[in-house]
């Protein structure tokens, strides 16, 4: 919270005091060994696991990322190998299995003598109800109700997916913001709101952990912004790795937006990775969702 406030405040200050000066430069960057990038998210709602493998490149290179095609990628479930990924022309590797909640998975990729690997524990199933909330505020108000399981550590993410723009365009996307007064929401992507009686808005998702709601039934009432009906309202329960990856990615995006809008201060933000020997993410999630249409 304090960082964002400071940056916002700094923007005003810079406007008053200093004439910002931005110019294009060529940095003399040293050659660095590229890192192997492995990305894979296990979703218990899908029957196929997809993995992407590529290499990092210098920021000055400005060329498309090239996928690594000749790798051997395997997946283990609770210590037992359950399959080898197959290369697809879509520049990804796939493995037709359905990940199961509560199990431990390990992914391992061998690339030219190098091995990169990571592990994830898929969270237990989450039980929640999603319904329309009886609020008198503008927009479609939803309520996600759940009681946290005190025996597990949970990271929750709430948002909605819907149609964007005209009906005939058939474009769908995630809500650009969630308006809510939920007291236990993480403030990392929070802004003060002036919409629909809600005090805060949250960029893309509303995140909260079970740290403050142990054994407590909670109702999260919110309005998704920027999407039209039908709305697919969802609740994700992620493992710790995907949670940190999502949070750090959004923080980095915020920093990039700040730097574009108010070019006065910048602090690079490291994106979370749990890949040993490389970078990227191997995470997992459970989700429940409900679709609300005009009817």
């Amino acid at each position: 919270m304090s960082l964002r406030i400071a940056i916002k405040t700094m923007s005003i200050l810079t406007f008053i005091l200093i004439n910002g000066c931005i110019e294009d430069v060529q940095l003399n960057l040293k050659d660095e060994e590229p890192e192997i990038v492995l990305n894979c998210i296990l979703n218990t709602g899908q029957d196929t696991v997809t993995a992407w493998l590529s290499k990092s490149q210098l920021i000055s290179e400005n060329k498309p990322f090239v996928a690594i095609k000749d790798a051997e990628i395997s997946l283990r479930e609770d210590g037992v190998t359950i399959g080898e990924f197959i290369w697809q022309d879509s520049s990804a590797y796939i493995l037709p299995i359905k990940p199961e909640p509560g199990k431990k998975y390990k992914i391992e990729a061998k690339v030219g003598g190098k091995t990169v690997w990571a592990e994830t524990n898929i969270p237990d199933p989450v039980f929640a109800t999603i319904q329309i909330a009886k609020y008198n505020f503008v927009g479609k108000n939803y309520m996600v109700s759940l009681t946290d399981d005190p025996n597990t550590t949970n990271y929750y993410w709430i948002s909605a997916y819907g149609r964007e723009g005209r009906e005939e365009d058939q474009q769908y996307n995630i809500a650009f913001a969630i308006f809510s007064n939920f007291l236990y929401a993480d403030d990392f992507n929070q802004r003060v709101s002036e919409y629909g009686g809600y005090n805060f808005e949250y960029e893309y998702y509303l995140r909260f952990t079970d740290k403050e709601i142990q054994n407590k039934p909670v109702d999260v009432v919110f309005v998704p912004a920027g999407i039209n009906l039908p709305h697919q309202v969802f609740l994700l329960s992620t493992d710790v790795h995907l949670d940190k990856y999502m949070k750090s990615s959004i923080l980095l995006e915020q920093m990039d937006i700040f730097v574009t809008e108010s070019p006065n201060t910048y602090s690079p933000f490291p994106v979370y990775s749990n890949i040993y020997g490389g970078t990227g993410i191997f995470g997992s999630m459970n989700s429940i969702s409900k679709t609300f249409s005009k009817k």
Partner: peptide, 23 residues
């Protein structure tokens, strides 16, 4: 300084067409 960058995957439900998906 972030001297390198890498290909990432969109966050859940962000596979859509919005500009942020590109980011």
């Amino acid at each position: 300084l972030a001297t390198q960058e890498y290909q990432a995957i969109p966050l859940p439900f962000m596979e859509g067409s919005r500009y942020s998906a590109k980011w």
